[in-house]
Amino acid sequence: MSPEISNQSLLFLIVFVLVPLSLSYYYQLGQNKDIIWSSIRGTVQLFLIGYALNYLFDLPPYIGIPFMISVMIIVASFHARKKGEGLPNVLWTILLGLIIIEVSVLSLWLVADMIEFTPSEVIPMSGMVIGNSMVAMGLALERMKSEFKENEGRLLAALSLGAEPKQASHIIVQRTLMASLIPNADKLKTVGLVQLPGMMTGLILGGVSPVMAIKYQLVISLSIFSAVSLSAIYITLVMYRYFFNKKMQLKQFSHQESS
């Protein structure tokens, strides 16, 4: 059903790489090496994943699926952890969060019979949920760190008035959540109008009828929306406490209060 792209045709993609490369060269952006490296790396990575997926799809689902999902979750955790540098237990918190989210979303899909328990359905769909959750957790971590820094004065004020850490960081939790929900709600509003989502595009190219493709897209869009919200609230509610010590004092990440 899918139109094959031959390897020779793929070679012409070099033209697409030449565009940014010549720009970088002409304007002396110093990105030449980086552009070549990322193009090669991206190509090799995709081919490897392609072959790996081919192999996994041939395995029995109860082996292939857990294996691939574990790999995705572990890679995503290590990636998102960078955003939480300086905070304790970030890796474990993210890992646990991704497991909880993936398991609940996947169960709902299977129970409601939206997808089948086969690698070719579960793995790409899960990949999207895990990937988006990873980004959401990273953003929430970054956002929280900057909110804590920015609002140090207010936090001190709240603590000094007798607030416990939970009450003192209420505004910060609120703002972090808002920051992660709003862009995703906005994305939903324009879905399909500005840009056909990647998954829909893929299905349509693969020969699936647009209405069928939309059903899948709806499942994934809403699943991502809820996974992203869950990720943000989970990270904020677990991590805010690490900004305080046991004596309800703000930990000093950088020492500079208004003198």
């Binding site: 004020a157 603590l159 008035l161 007798g162 416990e164 505004i171 004596k247 309800m248 208004s258």
Partner: peptide, 20 residues
């Protein structure tokens, strides 16, 4: 208890730092 002590010995910070 810490919150109680802080209420009894109240602090006005240098900048107002009001809550929204």
């Amino acid at each position: 208890t810490i919150p109680k002590l802080r209420r009894k010995i109240g602090l006005v910070l240098q900048a107002p730092h009001l809550f929204p």
